[in-house]
């Protein structure tokens, strides 16, 4: 197994970069991070819509969230793979295809985190803001959002962890990332499938464990700050 790591470690980490396309763990992290980063602004809008006074808007967005959360990511990837070129008339790179699918998928999950963050604050905060003459959006901007965003940080890190794992299936449409690299190694070696996939699992595990730990640290720090100790 050590031999495998020595031989293919770089490939698992960065794919064929710098001679070719970036792949491996680096591509996995880039895909997950960009997916979440681009889904987040959409999720904030969806989150606001979810708590809006307009029934129709609330209903439409609730539908969006329920549907996207109710289907597997791979369906979205297939659809993006076949439908995006059909609609745009352009051939789209595998990376963009996967990114679009992940943004759509994560927007639904993040929207729920945003909604919970906005609604999780004591009602008195909004009331105090409105009572002082701030408009609804001013209250959101200066009073509710800054507090809600801090409260969301641990959930966002957790979502990052689950997104990293979820991206593993994009190798199916040929996106060069971590699982794809392991797949390649397996087809070169042929006899070491068990070890190869054990290494693959180990890499996912270490990365996700580290992130979960970071989330816990962050949460503890936020708790401390809220208690006025820091």
């Amino acid at each position: 197994m050590i031999e495998l790591i020595q031989k293919y470690g770089v490939m698992l980490l960065v794919g064929s970069w710098p001679h070719g396309q970036i792949g491996g763990l680096a591509a996995t992290l880039i895909l997950a991070f960009l997916g979440l980063a681009l889904a987040f602004p959409i999720a904030i809008l969806l989150g606001f819509a979810r708590i809006s006074h307009f029934k129709v808007l609330r209903g439409v967005v609730a539908g969006w969230v329920v549907i996207l959360r109710g289907i597997p990511l791979i369906m979205l990837i297939f659809w993006a793979y076949f439908v995006v070129p059909l609609i745009t008339g352009m051939s789209v790179s595998v990376f963009v295809t996967c990114l679009v699918a992940i943004i759509l998928y994560e927007s639904a999950f993040l929207a729920e985190i945003v909604r919970a963050g906005l609604q999780g604050l004591p009602r008195g905060q909004m009331e105090a803001a409105r009572a002082s003459g701030l408009s609804y959006w001013q209250s959101m901007r200066y009073v509710i959002l800054p507090q809600a965003l801090v409260n969301m940080i641990p959930s966002l890190v957790n979502q990052f962890v689950s997104t990293i794992k979820a991206t593993s299936i994009v190798y199916i449409i040929g996106m060069e990332e971590l699982t794809f690299a392991a797949q390649q190694i397996n087809s070169i070696e042929l006899t070491n499938a068990l070890q190869t996939y054990l290494i693959l699992a180990g890499i996912y595990f270490i990365v996700c464990l580290a992130l979960s730990y970071a989330a816990r640290l962050l949460e503890a720090r936020i708790q401390k700050r809220r208690a006025g100790l820091a």
Partner: peptide, 9 residues
């Protein structure tokens, strides 16, 4: 307000 409702941030 009864609960003060200062903005903690």
């Amino acid at each position: 307000f009864q609960q003060f409702n200062l903005f903690p941030h």
